[in-house]
Every structure is written in C-alpha cells, then in structure tokens.
C-alpha cells in the first residue's frame, strides 16, 4: 500500500516536472532595462503568452545564468541587446530574427551632454559622468566617443537607473556630464524645455542597433508558431503595452543588410 503510494507520488512529481519543462521559453537578458522587479513583468508576459500556447517568459539578471540556460535549451527565443549579440554571444550560436523599433527607428545614438559652462572636453578630466546601463559598456562607449588621449580613463562613472536620472544628476551637480539616449533628450525638451536649454552636447556615439530577438542556430522555432506569437505582439493591444515596458514600440524582420551589420 505504502509502496504503491510512493510510486504514485513519484509518478505525479515526474509528470509535473516533465510538463513544466514542456513550456517553450522566451528568455530576456538586458542589463540596461529599467525593470528591477522581474516578477510583475514575468507575470504580465506569461499571462499574455498563455493565450497562445505553452509558452513562458523568463527574464535574467545575471548573464552567466542566461547563457547557461540558452546552452541547455536550444528551443528558445532570446531578446538581448545588440551590443551583447555583437560582442559576447558568439559561442551561443545565435541567429537574429527580429530587431526592435522605437519611433520608427531600429538604431539609436548616445550623446554626452553637460551644462553649457563646459566648453572643452578636457574640462571633464577626473569628473563624474552619470549614465544608465552597464558600467563596462559605458566605459567602452566613452572610450570610443572621447578621442582626447587618456581622458576617458580619468572619468568616474556613476550608474543610475534611468537616462532622466543621469540628466538630472548634471542639473543638480552630482555629475559633470551625462551619457544619454538621444530619445531621452527629446523627452526632456518636450516636458522641461527650460532645463533642456541649459544643456549642450559634447560628443555623440555612432549609431547602435536596438535589441534583437534571436534563436539558437540549431533551433527549429523559426518555422513554428512561437516566433509568430512574438512577431505579432505589436498587433495586439496587450502585446504593444508589453513591448513599451521593454522600451520599444514594435519589431521588424532582420534583413540581409542588418544581419551583415550585426555580424561585423
């Protein structure tokens, strides 16, 4: 009797584990996202995806956990920053399928802005630069943007949650300059034109792609319905809201030109 119950119990647990693993996953890794509590984002995504099949959304904060999971599971879709795809994902063997769009653009530019009293870049030497995002990426970007010899190495980086925090840090003297998305500057211009008028652009980055949706090269998912569900999010009201939460409006397919640029 007891033995029978144990076998039954093991059977139930194994069945549960099997069915739990049967969900196809949409993995999200982006250290630049403003979302700090992933639970509510996961809840909203899972609720949306559940209307279309056994799909789940899985956000990751730590890159090694994300990479480990992608290596374990070929049948997944990932949403990652384009810089991560270009610089760090080669061993994951990913193939970009969609690219995010914001304000009808698939690329964005970063600007280094300060108050107007900074007229020369070398006035920034040994000062604090506020920026959102990942510290290593910010350092790399500043290195590319500031050609003055050795200047970028003297800078202290203060990582803040949002571009608007970085801009306000300049306004209130916690930083001498802010590295910010071009779009955030427009936002400041439209809401607080007086504050915007106090700022000047010192340098601009080259254009970078917005995040990409990719699948492992060995995956067959592209042909199947899950990719359609992701692709069609922009056509559904709730899907649009979820995309906005991630910081963009829609996707477009990765064409040959974009692919070539992403792979250079």
């Amino acid at each position: 009797m007891v033995k029978g119950f144990i076998i039954f119990f093991i059977g139930i647990v194994s069945f549960g584990a099997l069915t739990a693993n049967n969900k196809t996953s949409f993995y999200f890794y982006n250290p630049e996202t403003n979302v700090t509590k992933f639970a509510s984002l996961k809840k909203a995504f899972d609720l949306y995806l559940s209307d279309f099949g056994a799909y789940e959304f899985q956000p990751f904060k730590k890159v090694h956990l994300f990479e480990e999971q992608v290596r374990l599971n070929n049948e997944c879709i990932v949403l990652i920053p384009s810089w991560y795809y270009k610089n760090f994902s080669s061993d994951l063997q990913l193939k970009p399928v969609l690219i995010a769009k914001s304000n009808n653009k698939i690329k964005y530019k970063k600007k280094l802005v300060s108050k107007r009293n900074i007229r020369y870049l070398d006035q920034l030497k040994s000062t604090t630069i506020a920026s959102s995002g990942n510290k290593e990426i910010v350092k790399k970007l500043l290195n590319e943007m500031l050609l003055e010899e050795g200047l970028s190495q003297t800078l202290k980086i203060l990582i803040v949650p949002k571009d608007i925090d970085a801009l306000m840090a300049v306004e209130f003297g916690m930083a001498k300059a802010a590295l910010t998305n071009e779009k955030s500057l427009y936002k400041l211009k439209s809401v607080a034109p007086k504050q915007y008028s106090k700022l000047t652009t010192l340098s601009e980055s080259s254009e970078e792609f917005l995040p990409v949706v990719a699948i492992p090269k060995l995956s067959r998912l592209e042909k199947f319905s899950f990719m359609s569900v992701i692709r069609e999010m922009q056509m559904k009201q709730q899907g649009k809201v979820l995309l906005k939460r991630l910081g963009f409006d829609s996707w477009e397919s990765v064409d040959e030109n974009v692919l070539a640029e992403l792979n250079t």
């Binding site: 996202t33 403003n34 979302v35 509590k37 509510s40 909203a44 608007i164 906005k244 991630l246 910081g247």
Partner: peptide, 14 residues
C-alpha cells in the same frame, strides 16, 4: 503615457 512605461521599474497591482 504608455511611452513612459520603460521608465517604470515596477508595475504594481495589474
């Protein structure tokens, strides 16, 4: 303004 959703760290009580 849904365009501002990406600035939000946490959505509560959906």
């Amino acid at each position: 303004n849904e365009d501002g959703l990406h600035m939000v760290n946490e959505i509560i009580d959906e």
